[in-house]
Amino acid sequence: MIHPGKMAREVLTSLFRKPATVLYPYVKVQMPDRFRGKIKFTSPLCIGCKLCMRDCPTNCITITKVGDKQFQAEFDLDRCIYCAQCVDTCPKKALEATAEYELAQLQHDKLKVIFHAEPTPASSPAAPAEHAPQSQPAIGA
């Protein structure tokens, strides 16, 4: 049973089909619901137990106490492997994985992400301020 050019029919029908390629930078890829992307830190929820620091395989998280029951988190994204173990470890759900995956940077220092503590810890757990260090120097860093 020999058939030279067996794939000929398949390839010819491909001419009339849409290419399977996703034109990535122009067409964004939708990540699945449970995708493990960039980690988000919600400062008011943090109790400073530092379990995440202990379990992080690459030691990319640093939690610092900046005031009374106020904590800020520092992520070295160049070391993070996006395993989201910290999300599982956190007893208070202060950490969560987002669907953000476009994290490549040309400048090394932009890979350091600091989630500052809210000025008043009692206020609503709204979106925390997120800054790269050069735009606003880290407190205590």
Binding site: V11, P19, T21
Partner: peptide, 9 residues
């Protein structure tokens, strides 16, 4: 060649 392989080219 690309279109036959179901690529964009």
């Amino acid at each position: 060649y690309a279109r036959l392989q179901n690529r964009v080219g």
